[in-house]
Design a protein around this nucleic acid. Structure first.
Length: 502
RNA sequence: GCCGCAUUCGUCUAGAGGCCCAGGACACAGCCCUCUCAAGGCUGAGAUCAUCGGUUCGAAUCCGAUAUGCGGUACCA
């Protein structure tokens, strides 16, 4: 059996896309599961749209997800061509190879120069569409004489290179996820342009040249390439290269079931990262979009995924990206994090809160650690930490006094409740400032006054935090501190009295 | 238009002829826990397995047609 070599070949024309990330993941899982080699190659021949920022985003994003490649460009001090013996791994550094391959195809008359201008081609296509014919290149330049060519050259035309697509042939292949697929060559649109008039190669050509040169054994990619596969097979044949196995993955869809796009969904991996999703959850979610273990296991680590991954078990139908499910998984994974780990991961989000002016200082690690028992299970995302604990780290609490008054209480009762609670809480004292010390006397107060615990607690909660939903009250007050708790109660009483006076 | 691929609860999926008048998870509803919010536990609702026809003693599973959706059809990738 020949060795397994797979690749992800993104083009740096945009930030790392969810779909690219998932394709990379499936390739990676497949390689790791079988002990194969995973290669990263940059398809940067679209110079007009490519940029180094996008390239960095893609590299960083994949690393963040824990997807490591055995061959390909690195992030830091790697050799410029990348690591691995089939490099370079950037197509713009492989230009001679495409020229060489094109020259050979030309020499063998498997390709030819075409002098048609884009305008002529366009007119031809329009005519065909009007006549309800299948648009396809006519082959007008397929048998040009030396004289014909010379005449075009004199006109100043620069030719493209077209690869001959045979007619009336059926190309068949056995797709690992879809099974047997047959496509007639007549449906391929005629002879294929493989080199632009400026001499740069086109995608279908580079992909075949590189996959052959890099000895790729399995091409695992999105379903949007299924219809293009015959072109690649023909190219492999023409170059005398072995034909790899193919596996076309189902697409990730927008909620309206169209192919996931930037317009309708959030597609940038970096955006999810910025919103507080953690890589464990993201990878877990992506792997289960279009694939399942066949068991009822749902929460799986990268190592688990590698162990269980089976390409043939991949689904055929597209899957809508379900953010709610991602959030649930993210919560699952956040709850599994160790305290130290969580604190480290939370820090950037706390810094962002500070930068946005939503908190006045960043809590010390020990303070965060003390908070974790009540915070960890309440975080669907890391970014949710701000909303959850913000009130602890501000000097001045923005408080809507009317929010304090419960539906079944009036202002006077509320003020009385707060004052009573204030004195009981003050009585606990700074030295016994623990949740277990604060709760009993307050419950006793409730008992004496014939109130409902929930109502008084809610009054205190809002007075002290400004919110109706918080972590457990007594833990919250402990985190706030004795002095600050009393100060906030005093301030709430003042504000309520002001409201009552009007 | 042409070619290709797909079609199981709202969503992600299990299911490879009898174990399925279809199982799990997310979301949803109710209950329990409970100082609120979560988390967790339990329960529930939710799918004529796209439709029609065929094969078979028996079909979500095999075959065909239809419908619908999506993808491809570039001097983009």
């Amino acid at each position: 059996m020949t060795s397994i070599r797979v690749r992800i070949a993104p083009s740096p024309t945009g930030p790392l896309h969810l779909g690219t990330a998932r394709t990379a993941l499936f390739n990676f899982l497949f390689a790791r599961h079988l002990g194969g080699t995973f290669i990263f190659r940059l398809e940067d021949t679209d110079q007009a749209r490519s940029s180094v920022e996008f390239e960095k985003d893609i590299l960083n994003g994949l690393h963040w997800l824990g997807i490591q490649w055995d061959e390909g460009p690195g992030i830091g001090d790697e050799p410029p061509g990348g690591r691995g013996s089939y490099g370079p791994y950037r197509q713009m550094q492989r230009l001679e190879r495409y020229t060489e391959a094109a020259t050979r195809l030309l020499a063998e008359d498997k390709a030819y120069y075409c002098y048609c201008t884009p305008e002529e081609l366009d007119a031809e296509r329009k005519r065909q569409e009007a006549a309800r014919e299948t648009p396809r290149y006519s082959g007008r330049c397929s048998a040009l004489s030396q004289a014909d060519r010379a005449a075009f050259e004199v006109e100043g035309r620069t030719p493209v290179v077209r690869f001959r697509i045979p007619s009336n042939r059926t190309i068949a292949f056995d797709d690992i996820v879809r099974g047997h697929v047959e496509i007639d060559t007549n449906a391929l649109g005629g002879d294929l342009v493989i080199v632009r008039s400026d001499g740069t190669p086109l995608y279908h050509f580079t992909v075949a040249v590189d996959d052959a040169a890099m000895a790729i054994s399995h091409v695992i990619r999105g379903e949007d390439h299924l219809s293009n596969t015959p072109k690649h097979i023909l190219l492999f044949e023409a170059m005398g290269a072995a034909i790899p196995k193919f596996a076309h993955l189902p697409l990730i869809l927008n909620p309206d079931r169209t192919k996931m796009s930037k317009r309708k969904s959030q597609t940038a991996v970096a955006a999810y990262r910025a919103q507080g999703f953690i890589p464990e959850a993201f990878v877990n979610y992506l792997a289960l979009l279009g694939w399942s273990t066949g068991t009822e296991e749902e929460v799986l680590s990268l190592a688990d995924l590698i162990e269980r991954f089976e390409l043939s078990a991949v689904n055929k139908a597209g899957a809508i990206f379900d953010r709610g499910r991602l959030e649930w998984l993210n919560g699952q994974w956040i709850r599994r994090l160790s305290a130290d780990d969580l604190i480290d991961r939370l820090r950037p989000f706390l810094e962002a809160e500070l930068a946005a002016g939503r908190i006045d200082w960043i809590p010390a690690d020990e303070d965060m650690r003390a908070l974790l028992p009540v915070v960890q299970e309440r975080l669907p995302t890391l970014a949710a930490v701000g909303e959850l604990v913000r009130f602890l780290f501000v000097n001045e609490l923005a408080l809507d006094p009317t929010l304090i008054v419960p539906k079944r209480w009036d202002i006077a009762t509320t003020i009385a409740g707060l004052e009573a609670a204030r004195s009981v809480i003050a009585g606990v004292g700074e030295v016994s400032w623990e949740a277990d010390e604060i709760e009993p006397p307050l419950r006793q107060l409730v008992e004496e006054r014939g109130w409902k615990a929930g109502e008084l607690f809610m009054v205190v909660r809002v007075a002290v935090t400004g919110r109706t939903a918080t972590p457990p009250l007594f833990d919250t007050m402990v985190a706030l501190g004795y002095e600050r708790t009393l100060a906030r109660l005093d301030r709430a009483i003042e504000q309520l009295q002001a409201v009552a006076a009007t």
